[in-house]
Design a protein around this nucleic acid. Structure first.
Lengths: 255, 255
DNA sequence: GTTGTGATGTTAAAATTATAACATTTAGTG
DNA sequence: CACTAAATGTTATAATTTTAACATCACAAC
């Protein structure tokens, strides 16, 4: 009778497919068996679903019990981006209407928006939308279109036009490359028009990039550095890279 | 000293960036404070990191789906909806362009789309988009706008117009109420125009509802039963409820 | 039918986690 | 330096989850 167990596992996997959690008692009800049976099922297949404090969650890495691993943490640049976003956050005021660019750079910023009383976030990125959607204090406007998985963002012919009609207070733009001569660039061409439209529509333009992006050139240029009102970056040396003889862009680096 | 709290949050986020979990006591040690302080930190920012049975987990996997607790109403009807969707799936053919309505009814259907070679999914629902976004074989078009948390969907003035321009093969529509006399209804008025536009643009219209919706009336009517080409439902008695003297709507109930 | 075996259910005790109340420390201010 | 308020720590208690042991049920083989 191991069919039954497998069937229940499949049911639960499906229920958890959206990435949520499921209470053990609900899982038992869902499968029409006792909680103990669910426990035994999960114990037999620890790599599929894990049980944390009475709630079922999808096991992220097959074959590995979810445990904190210190070596893995170095691999991610999350802390650098998190610091960067703490600086960028200073520019956000209650009531603002923010345009938020796609990419992972600005994600930590989204996690800090619950502190405000009321905000509006406009974006064309799915990950940004997901981060903001649960927040009751944030009005979310997602610009839709065809989905591009590589950048987790949408593109459509009419997007630039839609953005122009919006009242944007501050535009938070990220980039994959920043070069004083060549300009600011990203990987995907479909991001160019939305970025440009947002910059045109916004009252304040902020470029948020970590220092590793300086001197780097990527396929799609979308602006020159001087078009930004503020550059938020993370290292002391970076401002020097930004300076040229013609323009002075206010740059924020201090913690 | 709310800086400290933010700093700890960032540290913990970094530790969890790889998607693992962290025991509360390790988190406390990592930050050099007591467990109680970590608890308070997390309580203040419930959307960043959640505490499940004494372990910290990222509230949402980076770039993927938000935490979505379907414990209450959703779990109870999930099995019914899953069966329902197995029937609805018969109407999907490789290469189809599908319009997928918002709500939880059609979610199980989304989890079965990986079987096909190539599909296009058009939707205005965030949960549908999230379910489909990871699938490499599905082209996703999300119709954006202002986000409504209650239905996890977007609304905009131009959405109906956008839908009309799309080539939709089959429209999968869900509803909160189906009444032979009064018609088919949903909770939220902003869903009416997208549903109607999709039905107008589609070559085939499928109404997918579990039997509990029959005889129920909700605030926003959007169609009459006879406008659908197929009704997919889950109980034997349901077809009788659908029948009247003037129209015969093909109804699918068999497993 | 009986019987055996594996799966499932139930119960009580042990371990763990959550909460609340109060004590203590720390940082900022006059 | 003293004072205040906020942040943090400590403790006891309540609630929940986990484990283990045993009871019961379902189904197949005889």
């Amino acid at each position: 009778m191991k069919d039954r167990s497998a069937l229940r596992l499949a049911t639960l996997q499906e229920a958890l497919a959206t990435g949520g959690t499921l209470h053990l008692r609900d899982a038992a009800a869902l499968c029409g068996v006792s909680e103990m049976t669910i426990r035994r099922d999960l114990n037999a297949h620890p790599h599929v679903i894990s049980l944390l404090g009475g709630r079922l969650v999808m096991a992220h890495t097959p074959g590995v019990t979810p445990v904190y691993d210190l070596s893995e943490q170095q691999a991610s640049h999350y802390q650098a981006k998190s610091r960067l976003c703490q600086r960028a956050q200073r520019f956000i005021e209650d009531g603002d209407t923010l345009f938020v660019d796609c990419g992972s750079t600005l994600m930590p910023l989204m996690n800090q928006l619950s502190e405000y009383r009321e905000l509006t976030v406009i974006t064309y990125a799915l990950n940004v939308a997901n981060a903001v959607a649960p927040l009751p204090n944030v009005r979310l406007v997602l610009l839709g279109g065809l989905f591009y998985a590589a950048s987790q963002s949408f593109a459509s012919d009419s997007m630039a036009e839609s953005i122009e009609r919006l009242g944007i207070n501050k535009a938070f733009i990220s980039a994959a490359g920043v070069d004083m001569q060549r300009g600011v660039s990203c990987f995907h061409f479909h991001e160019v028009l939305p970025k440009q439209a947002a910059m045109a529509a916004a009252m304040q333009r902020l470029l948020v990039v970590d220092a590793s992006k300086f001197g780097v050139v990527r396929p799609a240029y979308f602006a020159s550095v001087s078009e930004f009102d503020v550059v938020v970056t993370d290292e002391e040396g970076a401002p020097a890279l930004l300076r040229d003889d013609h323009h002075a862009v206010p740059t924020i680096t201090a913690p």
